[in-house]
Amino acid sequence: MRFKASIQNINTFTKLTASLNSLGPLAWVKLSDDQVCFTIIPEQGTQVWAVLSIDSIFDTYTVQSAANNVINLEVPLAALNRALKSAWNATSAQIRLTKKDGMPLLALTIVTASSSSHAGFPTATAEDDLDDVYDQPFGRGSRETTITQEVPIRVLAHETVAGLHEPQCREPDVHIILPPLLQLKSISDRFTKLALVGKSTSTSAAPRTRLELSANMHGCLRLSIRTDAMNISSVWTDLNNPELDPGQVEGIEEHPSTRMKQLGSADGRSEEGWATVRIDARDWSKVMSVGRLGGRVIACFCHEFALILYVYLPSDSGEEESVLTVGSSGDGFYSLPSWRS
C-alpha cells in the first residue's frame, strides 16, 4: 500500500480541511487513481460528500494498493488542517502514507525558505540594516528549514467502506446560486443571536433554533427566523437560477423546477412558488464555513425535505470539476445533477 503526492495547491487543501473540520472531526478519505473523495457522516447534522480531481490539489500523485489501487483512510481533520497550515508559505510540501512503530500515519514534509532573516534584523541598528541587505543573498540566504508533521490515521479495510453510498433524494423543486456566503453567514449568525437573546444558552434542553430558508425559481432567496417575540426575514433578489442541462437531465418539462417556474415572481413578494426548508441554526453556521473556499455554491431545495449545497472549487483552468456536496436538513439526499455551464 503506497501513497505519495506533492501538494500543489496548499491553500485550497488547507481551506478545504478547515471547512470540513467545522462539520465533523473525522473524514473518510478515499484515494484512487483519478480522484480523492472526502466523506463526513456525523451522527447528526450535515453530511459532506466531496469529490476532488487529483490535480486540483496534488501533483505527481501515486497511489498503489492490492484493492485496485484504492486506499481508504480515516483522518482526523483538525490534525490534518493544522499540519497543512504549517505549509502556508512553504516552497514545497509532500504528503505520504507511512508507518512508525507499527502505527500508520500521513507524514507531511514541508520545506520552507530559511528564516535566517531573523538573525540580525530586529536588533540591528540602521547601519547594520544596510549590511544585512548585502549579506543575505550571499551569506545567510538560500537555506531551508524542513518541517515534518505526522498525522495519525487509521487505514480502513475495503469491506468497511463498501456499503457507503451517497444518499439518493428526489429532484429538487428549486435550485439557485447563493449570494456571497460571507454575507449570508453574517446575517444568519446575527439572526440566530437575536433569537437566542434572553434564552439560557447553556442548557442543552433549550429548543433548537431553526432558520427558515426559502427560494423560488425567480432568483429570490429568503432567510427568516421566528420566535415568540419576533419574526425577522431577509430577502435577496436577482440571484441566478442555473439552467438544467437537457443532455444530462431527462424530462426537463416534467422536472419539479420547471413547474415551480410557473409560480411566484422576481420581486419576492408573492407567497407562491417558494420551496422552504428549516435548518438547525448552529448546523447552518458550520455549513457556511465552506464559504472560505470561495467557490460557486448552488443550493437545491427539496420543499420541506432537504437542502443540498453543491460547492464548486474554483480552479486555475476555469473549469469547475471538483464538487463538494453538502446535504442539510431532513433525512434524504439525492444524486449529483448536472448543470449547463
Partner: peptide, 19 residues
C-alpha cells in the same frame, strides 16, 4: 483503538545549524 486518531500531531522542525 480509535483513540489513536486523538493523538496530536508530532512535529519535527529541522533547522540548519547555520541558522
Amino acid at each position: 483503538g480509535k483513540d489513536v486518531l486523538k493523538n496530536p500531531l508530532a512535529t519535527a522542525v529541522a533547522v540548519n545549524t547555520s541558522d
